[in-house]
Amino acid sequence: MGSRLLKRAGISPKTCEQLKRHNIESCKALELWKHYSDSRFLTSLPALDKVLRGGIPCGAITEVTGPFGCGKTQLCMMLSVVTTLPKELGGLDRSVIYIDTESAFSAERLVEIAQNRFPDYFSSREKVVQMAGRVHIFREMTCQDVFRRLEKLEEILIATKAGLIILDSVASVVRKEFDTTLPGNLLLRSNVLGEEATTLKYLAHQFNIPVVVTNQITTQIGGQGSGPDTEGDSGIVTAALGNTWAHSVNTRFILQYGDGHQRQLLVAKSPVAPFAVLNYTIQKEGFCMNGNDGEVTLYEGTDPSLQAIRVRTLINLDTP
């Protein structure tokens, strides 16, 4: 009966198979869409979560870049606290893998954020101790140490039931070890960063968890964003590590200084969100958006690797 209908419709068996494959592919796209809808990590910042269509994406790399002291580590510690929360409070009820390459992590600050941001839940010492015990800190101070840790991370993720990986920062060790003014070092550094990005993407996808990395800034002479990291008296301040790394991350947040005590979070790259600016301050409870829900301003974006970053001073921004 089926073959007769095909003949009547003038459809050959080959065309039928092609239609079947097309239908299967359409179903896969539908499944991906459903999977995407369920794979977001709420940051506890409603305005940011709304811009991101539900929160930071799982299965992908989110980068936070900006000048020293603007709150990159503060955001990472706040996200660590949120990860450990029960699901009914917007958390993941999971552990955190926190790779610290700058010795910037503070257990005291982690506890302070938890107790001030979620005072009802962390009203007892038992809950605080439980939370702190689920944030696993690894201090790795060289490129080789970081890469060895990433290679072992799959087993650690399974053992700890972690729901978030943080690398704070990805730029610190590579910029210390690779002087890009020397011949061949820029390529070597790009290779190291490429391997790290590949491993992090694999882990994010395999375990369907968010990966958050922090990055530093650099000055591009004459505003050119395609060359190696350089410093000088003129140019624009941009995210460090160049174009290759910029294309390795799925989402990029830029933290920068505004007027006075105001600071700004820019959504500079996202597969789903528009270019947006949110004002924030750093308080005892961590990141706080201005206003009740946070005011969001859209802006005309550019290549994220060329996006200028506002800083307090252009002198001695960082080390190459």
Rank of each mutant, 00 (worst) to 15 (best):
P119F: 03
P119K: 01
D120Y: 09
D120C: 08
Y121F: 14
F122T: 09
F122Y: 14
S123Y: 04
S123L: 05
S124Q: 10
S124V: 06
S124R: 09
E126L: 08
K127E: 14
K127T: 11
V128F: 01
V128R: 00
V128S: 03
V129Y: 05
Q130I: 04
M131D: 02
M131K: 01
M131W: 03
M131H: 04
G133S: 01
G133C: 00
V135M: 01
V135Y: 00
I137T: 05
I137Q: 04
R139W: 09
E140F: 01
M141D: 08
D145W: 01
F147R: 10
R148A: 14
R148Q: 14
L153A: 03
E154N: 07
E154W: 00
E155D: 10
E155H: 03
I156G: 01
I156H: 01
L157A: 02
I158V: 15
I158Y: 00
A159Y: 03
T160Y: 00
K161T: 07
A162D: 00
A162M: 03
A162H: 00
G163N: 02
G163T: 02
G163D: 02
I165G: 03
I165W: 03
I166H: 06
D168E: 04
S169P: 10
V170Q: 07
V170F: 08
A171I: 05
A171S: 15
A171M: 05
V173Q: 13
R175S: 07
R175C: 09
R175V: 07
K176M: 15
K176C: 14
K176T: 14
E177D: 09
E177P: 08
F178Y: 15
D179S: 05
D179M: 03
T180N: 05
L182N: 06
P183I: 08
N185D: 09
L186C: 10
L186F: 13
L186I: 13
L186Y: 10
L186Q: 14
L187Y: 12
L188F: 06
R189L: 12
S190G: 11
S190M: 10
N191M: 13
N191E: 12
V192L: 14
V192N: 07
V192A: 13
G194W: 02
E196Y: 12
E196R: 07
A197Q: 06
A197S: 15
T198A: 15
T198V: 11
Y202D: 11
Y202V: 01
L203S: 06
L203M: 07
L203W: 01
A204S: 07
A204R: 04
A204P: 06
H205E: 15
H205K: 15
Q206W: 06
Q206F: 12
Q206P: 04
Q206S: 12
